[in-house]
Amino acid sequence: MSGSHGETINVTLKVWRQTSADAPGGFETHQQAISTDASFLEMLDLLNEELNAAGKEPIAFESDCREGICGTCGVMINGRAHGPQKATATCQLHMREFADDDEIVIEPFRATGFPVIRDLAVDRSPLDAIIEAGGYISVNTGAASDANLTPVPKAAADQAFDAAACIGCGACVAACPNSAAQLFTSAKIGHLGLLPQGQAERWSRTEAMVETMEEFFGSCTNHGECTEACPKEISLDFIALMNRDYMKAKVKNRGLAGQH
């Protein structure tokens, strides 16, 4: 590869270590010399190899795709979800975003609904619970239907696509001072609710997903921290859409006297 090669920088890592949800945790400090060409997770990989070689427990963190689409890798880096670079998941963050002698504080995403599994890995299954409550559409089984059978207006397709970009990483919850999951939930509701295929369950979906969300997370006060932290820059507009659809859903789904 042509172009400039990375230099090596020395960084001080303060990493959160915690053996389980109930165990007390604390920071552990490591010095690391690392190429600025390395990704953030590669730096942790290298550190873990050293820890392994020294017979110590490696730092637990999650990752899978390492290309910003699976949503598993999020951690707090210097108090910012997914680190300092905008619209970038942790796995796509590179050490060139940091300078020599930087101190880097690495913590797990925090919320009561995200208990720590170990070190930097948290249990984000409440997001799955929200999806399970209504993040699906019903289609007839049988032979696959023709492509383009259902016309989708361009505007709806564009917006649904924007919402569908959500990778379920939970950075919105982690960055939110209220630990609210509005951005995630509204992206999922908006994604399906804007498309013709999602209309049949639109109102039951909105009601069920919002109410499941509220079993685990806090109440949105429209700070807007979520959008800033989101690696896919999901818009706050989806939260407004969800709030509107939720009210409509409650009215449409109301049980009249004696119908409950």
């Binding site: 108090g79 504080v105 925090r110 208990p115 720590v116 001072p177 209220n178 609210a180």
Partner: peptide, 30 residues
Amino acid sequence: LSRMSRASSEDAGLVSGAKRYAGGREHVAA
């Protein structure tokens, strides 16, 4: 609702009722 948000952040390093990160969480948008 403030109480609800607080309970949702209980395991998140609350400092005087507000969620804090040791990494010096700065507010970006709020």
